[in-house]
Design a protein around this nucleic acid. Sequence first.
DNA 1: CGTTCCGCTTGATCCGGATCAAGGCGGCCA
DNA 2: TGGCCGCCTTGATCCGGATCAAGCGGAACG
Lengths: 253, 253
Amino acid sequence: MQFKHPAGRLREPPSPIADDGDERHFCGTCAFSSACLAAGYQKPELAELQCLVEHVGPFRTGDHVFRTGDPFRAIYAVRSGTVKTRMFDEDGREQVLGFYLPGEVIGLNAIYPEHFPCDAVALDTAFFCRFSFPAMSALAARLPALQQHLFRMLSKELGSASLLAGDHSADERVGAFLVDLANRYAARGFSGTRFHMSMSRGDIANYLRLAAETVSRVLTRFRTQQLIKIDGREIELLNLAGLHQIGRALLHD
Amino acid sequence: MQFKHPAGRLREPPSPIADDGDERHFCGTCAFSSACLAAGYQKPELAELQCLVEHVGPFRTGDHVFRTGDPFRAIYAVRSGTVKTRMFDEDGREQVLGFYLPGEVIGLNAIYPEHFPCDAVALDTAFFCRFSFPAMSALAARLPALQQHLFRMLSKELGSASLLAGDHSADERVGAFLVDLANRYAARGFSGTRFHMSMSRGDIANYLRLAAETVSRVLTRFRTQQLIKIDGREIELLNLAGLHQIGRALLHD
DNA sequence: CGTTCCGCTTGATCCGGATCAAGGCGGCCA
DNA sequence: TGGCCGCCTTGATCCGGATCAAGCGGAACG
């Protein structure tokens, strides 16, 4: 049983429910941290947020966290591991919607349809915090900070969703993808220059709307240009500024 | 001074603030209607929603409702007219993010960044209901239905944003675009088979990530196939089922 | 009334990335 | 240990849509 974590933070096959030590660390990097920690864990209202959390996992590579059509009851924060969300179009072709790293939240796009519009599939061993959405909404009505936080998370995801839509070259897409991953790892306290990509080339290609062969070719070209060092799924960004320049049209606008 | 409305509902250059007659009609088709009307206009809480609305307009073709970088203070529901949202990438190329019809809401993607990440430009004479967002959040904390409604609107827009991202042929894109417009007009009580497209071919092309020439060619092909009748920006959908079939990969999944 | 400009259409050519095809490498299982 | 299978890489060819180019018609304006 392999058990490789992007930043090697989990050294042993963990217990089904992560212990408090990990929990405290995790919460500092989670998307809800500002709603939880910043407002102060001690306050009695926030104890309630803790109460409605349920720790779930482990999910193994290929396991489904939820499936298209499942009734929407909860959103999930990634505790550890990586997840992809995907849907199948009318012709049965897979469409990868996104990759989610520790601290990020999946399931927000299910609020409106009230059923999950996509699958969430673990790309390696993964754990989650599960938040009952009805309970969370009710709590949000009493905690303005939490309500605000939910609005902000939704709005943020809106912004990133519209980025992929542009017509951009393969180099721009791959460059921006690498920089984005790096930024997100760095934002959660992991290394922003060396990390493990849990997703296959095919998944990356699908997400970027390219062919797997094209992604492979671009990565080789980036390597010969000394922009990256890459060995299988282990990658090191050697020239972050250069990559940012290549992907600038898709980044931070 | 031309004054053409998609459904010809406004016959005269209206007063800056639309009158109550129009207002009652409009509210029935607005994105907030379920939060306003369904819950019952009479209830005193909902009077407050009425209070925080500010009617703005008219904006003429090309006028900006808001600009990239403006501080985010309010969201806007389109009362009449059409709007496009767009941003410019690092190289100064325009990217059309979306078109908004009467009853739809713009500005939700500004919550997170706290500044508008895009321009909103009127495509014809347009009026809006302006909702102060801080006031609305506060009200949402007391009205679970309103909070729920905001969550749902955000989540819905998330779903539609990810549709454009797929790699689809020009035919699929244009077909789905026409069906989508038709559905949205129909949902608001307008004709779902004959309507005026306020946006230029260039805007459509940009939105669909195609060249204007390609859009033009596809539309002429659709016409020769008897799928549509089109004269400039006036369009009639002759074979809705056929168009739906062509664009099925992008629709309702 | 003619001029100019802009949006739209149509035709000709070109190119980036998809597709097809062939190996290479490593992990897993019998 | 050998064989199989999935993932990745690299090469050759093809095609959809971008780009370049030209012409048309309507609106604004002198």
